[in-house]
């Protein structure tokens, strides 16, 4: 039964790499939007507030843009 539970859970799970990539895309769109609106590069806090996450989380998610979190993903997606 433990294995079945584990299987069910895995089946419904979202990998961190994918979730970060989605957040990173939202950050990039918000950044472009705010850059136009403000006529300057937005501050970390402005992005964070607009997306309702902490500045530290903005930094973390942005990293997903630079490199795939795993080789697996580069190859298979």
């Amino acid at each position: 039964i433990g294995e079945i539970q584990r299987f069910l859970r895995d089946d419904g799970s979202v990998k961190v790499s994918r979730s970060l990539k989605e957040t990173a895309n939202r950050i990039r769109r918000k950044k472009d939007e705010l850059t136009k609106e403000l006529g300057r590069q937005p501050r970390v806090s402005e992005i964070a507030e607009a997306l309702d996450i902490s500045p530290e989380e903005v930094v973390f998610a942005q990293e997903a843009m630079r490199e795939p979190a795993s080789i697996h993903e580069t190859v298979y997606e």
């Binding site: 799970s13 990998k15 961190v16 790499s17 979730s19 989380e57 979190a69």
Partner: peptide, 22 residues
């Protein structure tokens, strides 16, 4: 506190766990 949380998350994300575990 937020700094520590993200630092550990970024270290652990090398394992690409699922989001719930992270």
């Amino acid at each position: 506190e937020a700094f520590a949380r993200v630092t550990v998350a970024s270290f652990v994300s090398q394992l690409d766990p699922d989001l719930e575990q992270l």
